[in-house]
């Protein structure tokens, strides 16, 4: 029988216990073991960005991260960025308003990347947003609207509307 290890993961502020093989990626742990399927598998090779989530507030690819590696870290997924009362994160709201997606499959990764992009201070201009959002491929071609949504959300964040996000960083 293969070896399994017990992990206790801090995801979206909640503790999740699971027994998995050491080779299980964070992405597969989320999707197959924890029913957190908002994080998407597009390539499983670090080439598309659909699996982007946050580890200790930084955007990373969960397909190239072992679940075992992030025990003790704070993991945030698309399911964890709206407010407790259900209010959408400003980036989520801006994505809907600007029609920044079609099929929706790259969208959680785009949004997680966008939240981080703004937080990193890489949303200063359209050109900068394009470059710093280029790790998230969108085959439906929503790039114009993604840039518009990130710009809109970035200004909402800098004018202090966003509070939930800062809690996450802390």
């Amino acid at each position: 029988m293969t070896r399994t290890i017990h992990l206790s993961l801090d995801i979206n502020g909640k503790r999740h216990e699971l027994d998995v093989e050491p080779r299980v990626t964070l992405l597969d742990a989320l999707r197959e073991s924890l029913a957190l399927t908002g994080t998407k598998k597009g390539c499983d090779q670090g080439q598309c960005g659909a699996c982007t989530c946050h580890v200790d507030g930084k955007r990373v690819l969960s397909c190239l991260t072992l679940a075992a590696q992030v025990e003790g870290r704070q993991i945030t997924t698309i399911e964890g960025i709206a407010a407790e009362n259900g209010d959408l994160h400003p980036v989520q709201a801006a994505f809907i308003e600007n029609d920044a997606f079609q099929c929706g499959y790259c969208t959680p990764g785009q949004i997680m990347s966008a939240v981080a992009c703004i937080r990193e201070g890489h949303a200063g201009s359209e050109e900068e947003i394009r470059e710093y959002m280029s790790g998230n491929l969108c085959r439906c071609g929503a790039y114009n609207s993604i840039v518009a949504a990130v710009r809109e959300a970035a200004s909402a964040v800098t004018t202090g509307i966003e509070a939930k996000d800062k809690v996450e960083v802390a």
């Binding site: 670090g46 960005g49 982007t52 930084k58 955007r59 990373v60 690819l61 190239l64 991260t65 990347s113 981080a116 992009c117 990193e120 890489h122 710093y132 280029s134 790790g135 998230n136």
Partner: peptide
């Protein structure tokens, strides 16, 4: 190099 996510990793 790579993407912002990969550079964070």
């Amino acid at each position: 190099a790579a993407s912002a996510q990969l550079r964070n990793m």
